[in-house]
Amino acid sequence: MSLVTAGVVVLDCAEPEKLAEFYKELLGAEDLDAHVNRVEIRAADGFRLALRRDVNATAPSWPRPENSLQAHLEFVVDDLDAVERLIVGLGGRPMETGDATGPTEERGYADPAGHSFIIRRGTSTAPKQG
C-alpha cells in the first residue's frame, strides 16, 4: 500500500486566484480547495494543480539560456489551433521555442503569470534541447 495518496503540481505566483481562473478555463477544472494563499484545482481527468501565493514571484526566463527551465507543464490536446486560440483568449501568450519549420506537433506558451507550458499532440518524441 502506498503512503502517498496524491501528487500535486504547485506553481508560485503573485495572484493565485487570478491564475487559477486561467487554468480552470483551460482544463475545464473545478476548485478543489482554496485558502488565503493557495488555490488548488482538479481537472476532469483527476490532474491536480495548485497555485501558491508568492508576492516576490518572478516569471522564469525560459526559453532564454540565462535561466534554465526548472519544470514545465505539458497538456495533450487533439486540436493545437483551437487550444491556442483558447490560451490566447484567456490571457496566455505563445513563446518562441526554437525552429518552427515543418509540421508542429507541440507548441510552447506562458500563462498570464509567465509559467511555461507545452501543448502537444500525442506522445512527445523530441529530446530536451539545452
Rank of each mutant, 00 (worst) to 15 (best):
W62C: 04
L32D: 05
L11N: 11
S68G: 13
I87L: 07
L69K: 10
D54E: 12
W62V: 02
V10S: 07
V77I: 06
A59L: 06
A59Y: 03
V76K: 15
L80Q: 02
H35T: 13
R85F: 03
E96L: 08
P16T: 03
L90I: 01
E66D: 15
D79W: 04
K18S: 13
V4Q: 13
T58L: 10
S61K: 09
A14R: 15
V77W: 00
V8L: 13
V83D: 04
D99N: 15
A6R: 08
G46T: 07
E17R: 13
K18R: 15
V76R: 15
G89I: 02
I41Q: 01
T58S: 12
T97M: 12
T5M: 10
T101S: 15
L51F: 03
A100R: 15
A14W: 02
P65E: 13
G91H: 00
E74N: 12
E30K: 14
A29Q: 07
N67R: 13
R64G: 13
D99S: 09
Y23S: 03
S61M: 10
A43I: 02
A57Q: 11
A44V: 07
V9R: 00
R64A: 14
F47L: 10
E96Q: 14
P65L: 12
A43K: 01
A50S: 07
T5P: 03
D33R: 08
D33K: 05
P94Q: 08
A71W: 11
V36W: 13
D81E: 10
Y23T: 00
S61L: 13
V55R: 15
N67A: 11
E15K: 11
E96A: 12
E25H: 12
A100V: 13
E74V: 12
R85E: 14
V83A: 06
G92E: 06
G46C: 06
V39P: 03
E15T: 10
T101P: 10
K18T: 14
V4E: 14
I87P: 05
K24N: 00
E25F: 08
V55Y: 12
R52E: 04
E40V: 09
M95Y: 05
V8E: 09
L86E: 12
L73T: 09
L51T: 04
W62A: 11
R53Y: 06
L49Y: 06
L51C: 04
I87T: 07
E84K: 11
T58F: 10
R48I: 01
A43C: 01
G91W: 00
R52W: 04
E21K: 14
L86V: 08
D33I: 05
D33E: 14
D12T: 11
R48Q: 09
R48E: 03
D78R: 01
V8H: 01
P94M: 06
L32E: 11
V36T: 14
G102E: 09
A50Y: 02
D79P: 01
L86N: 11
G91N: 09
G28R: 04
